[in-house]
Computed example of a mutant assay.
Amino acid sequence: MMESKGRTIKIKIPAINFGNQFWKIFSLVLLVALVGSIYMNFRGVSFSGQLSSNDVGKKVIDFINNNLVQPGTSASLVSVKDMGSYYEIITSYQGQQIPVYATKDGKILFLQAIEMTETQKTQTQTTTQQQTQEIPKRDIPDVKVFIMSYCPFGIQAVKALLPVMKLLDGKANITIHYVDYIMHGEKEVYENLRQYCIQKEQRDKFYDYMLCFVQSGDYQKCLNEAKVDVNKLNVCMNETDQKYNVTKYYQDRSTWLSGAYPPFLVEKDLNDKYGVRGSPTIIINDKEVRVNRSPEAFKQAICQAFTNPPAECNQTLSTETASPGIGPLTGGSTSSGSCG
Rank of each mutant, 00 (worst) to 15 (best):
A172L: 05
Q202A: 12
Y244K: 04
H184D: 04
M148A: 12
S323R: 13
Y181M: 09
I11G: 02
Y86H: 13
Q96A: 09
R138E: 12
L265M: 14
K221L: 15
N41D: 12
L51A: 01
S338K: 03
T127I: 15
D252W: 07
T255G: 01
S254L: 10
N17Y: 02
G36F: 09
G36R: 09
E312Q: 14
N173P: 04
N65I: 06
Q215L: 06
Y86S: 05
W256T: 08
T316D: 12
C339N: 04
N271E: 01
Q202W: 11
W256C: 04
N285D: 07
G154P: 05
S4H: 09
D139Y: 04
Q97M: 12
S4I: 02
A172Y: 00
P263Q: 02
T319G: 12
G19Q: 11
D204M: 10
T319W: 08
K205H: 14
N245Y: 07
L109S: 01
A311V: 14
H184M: 07
P310L: 02
E296H: 12
A157S: 15
K227T: 14
N17T: 01
I90F: 11
K59G: 13
F213I: 04
C212V: 06
K121H: 13
F298T: 03
L77E: 10
K227Q: 15
V214G: 02
H177E: 13
C197S: 13
N41M: 13
S37M: 05
L233G: 09
Y196N: 10
A305E: 01
I25L: 14
Q251K: 11
Y209S: 12
M1V: 06
G275A: 06
V145H: 02
I174C: 09
A102V: 04
Y250E: 01
N54R: 14
S318K: 03
V276A: 01
K221I: 02
S254N: 14
Q70M: 06
H177Q: 15
G185P: 08
I302Y: 00
D169C: 03
S258H: 09
E288W: 00
S4M: 10
K121V: 10
K248R: 12
N66C: 04
V214Y: 00
Y249W: 11
Y274N: 01
Y219G: 03
L193W: 08
T255F: 03
L329Y: 06
E115P: 08
H177C: 05
G332Q: 04
Y244I: 01
Y190A: 01
A260Y: 06
T8W: 05
T175C: 05
V45P: 02
G44W: 05
S318Q: 07
M237I: 15
I61R: 04
L28E: 14
S27H: 15
V228T: 11
Q96N: 12
I176Q: 00
E239N: 14
P163M: 03
D204L: 13
L317N: 06
S149K: 06
P310A: 10
G259Q: 08
S37V: 13
I16K: 01
K287P: 01
Q131L: 13
F47P: 01
E288Y: 00
A15G: 15
Q300C: 00
T117A: 13
E188W: 07
Q120I: 14
Q112A: 14
G95V: 11
K104C: 00
F306S: 00
V246K: 03
